[in-house]
Simulated assay, not measured.
Amino acid sequence: MKWNSLTTIALFAPNNVLALLRFPCAQLVIDRLDPLVNPGVSPSPHLHQILGGNSFNTSMQPGEHDLPGESTCTSCQFSEDFSNYWTATLYFKSKNGTYKRVPQLPNAGFDGVNGGMTVYYMQDGLYNFNQTSKVTAFKPGFRMYIGDVNARTREEVERYRQLTFTCLDTIATRDPQTLDFPTKPCAAGIMTAVRFPTCWDGVNLDSPNHMDHLSYPESGTFESGGPCPDTHPVHVPQLFYEVVWNTSMFNNPADWPADGSQPFVWSFGDQTGYANHGDYLFGWKDDALQRAMDSPCYINCPVIKNQTTAEMNACTVNRRVIEEIDGWVTELPGGHTANYIKPRFEYAPKNE
C-alpha cells in the first residue's frame, strides 16, 4: 500500500485503528556525542542530530541514569517521553570540495516544529491499518541500534532494507523507497526512514552490538505481522523514524558533480547512503508507553500528556563539542571526507 497523503490517512483511518502514535520531536541539539556506540567519548567520531529528554549526555550507561528522573524537559510532543533518539547528519558536497550541513524540515502536519524528526510507535507494521496486536513496551534501561555505519555496497546493506530514502516531490510523497541516496534533485527534500526490529529476547536490555537482543519477525520484515522467532518471542512496538532533509536549497544542477553522481554525504563520509542508521535509548516515564500501546490511540493519545510546539522547541541543550557545524567547511566534523573507504570506528556488525 502506498501513502500519498498522511492527512488523508488521518481523516479516513478505520475506527478499529489502535495504538499508532505518530508525533514530532524538535531538535534537542546537534553534537558529536554518541553515548550508545561511543559511551564516554567526547567528541564522538561523527556528528548526530539528537532529540528527546534533556538529560542526554556523553556517557549514559545502563543502570547509571534515570532519563525521566534526570530530565527537566523533552523536545518531543508527549511530555512523558524522555527517550533519546538520534541519527547521523547529512551534508552537501560542493564542486570545490567544501561541505554544508543540510537542515531538517518538519514533517507533514507538524508546521512550526524546529527540525528534528517524526517518531512512530505501532502495534503492527507500518502498512497494516489493523493495529491490534498486543505489544510489550520497552523496559527502563532498554536501548538499541539499527544499521551498519561501515556499509558501502549494495550487498552489505541488503540486511538493512528497513532503512530507506524517498525523493520527495511534495512533503506527502512516500514512494518509491530506495536503499541508496536519490540520484536526482528532489523538489521537496529527501526523507530517510529508520525502522527498528519488533521482536525482543525478553531478557536483555542491550547486547554488545546493540542489535542481537532484537529480531525482525521470522517471516517478512517491517511490513508483515509475522510471528516472532522462538529466540526473540516478545513482540515490542514498531519504532520508526522519518527525517526530512531540506535538500531543495541545493537543487541547482550547476552545483552538482559534473560526472553525474549525487552530492550528498553522511557526516561520517558515506556518499552511498548505505550506512544509514539510527540509535534509541528508552526513557518514557513510568508506564506511559504501555498505556498508550494498550489504548485506542491514533496520532493523538488521550492517556498520555501532550505539550505545545513552543514547549517542544524550547527544550534544548548546549553543544558540548564546539566546532563549526553550520558554515561551509573543508572537511566533515571529525576530519572525514566523502569517499568509499570504510571508516575505522564504531561497531561493524557482521553480515549473516
Rank of each mutant, 00 (worst) to 15 (best):
N4T: 10
T8N: 14
I9T: 13
A10L: 10
A10F: 10
A13Q: 04
L21K: 05
L21H: 01
R22A: 11
A26F: 05
V29G: 04
L36H: 03
N38A: 15
S44A: 15
P45S: 01
H48M: 14
N54S: 05
P62F: 06
G63N: 07
G63I: 04
E64M: 15
P68I: 06
G69S: 11
S71A: 05
S79D: 09
W86D: 02
T89P: 07
L90S: 03
S94V: 00
K95H: 13
T98H: 09
V113A: 12
N114S: 15
T118E: 09
L126E: 13
T132L: 10
F138L: 14
K139P: 02
F142W: 14
I146M: 07
V149E: 03
V149Y: 01
R152I: 00
L163Y: 08
T170E: 12
D175L: 11
Q177T: 09
P182E: 06
P182D: 05
T183A: 12
A187W: 06
M191N: 05
M191K: 08
F196W: 08
D206A: 10
D212G: 00
H213Q: 13
L214F: 14
S215N: 12
P217Y: 06
G220P: 07
T221Y: 10
G226M: 10
L239D: 03
Y241P: 08
E242V: 02
W245T: 03
Q262W: 07
F264W: 15
D270T: 06
T272D: 05
Y274T: 03
G278K: 04
D279F: 02
K285A: 15
D294T: 04
S295Q: 09
C297P: 10
T308F: 08
T308M: 10
A310I: 06
V317H: 01
N318M: 09
R319V: 08
L332F: 03
N339G: 14
P343H: 07
F345M: 07
P349V: 01
K350H: 12
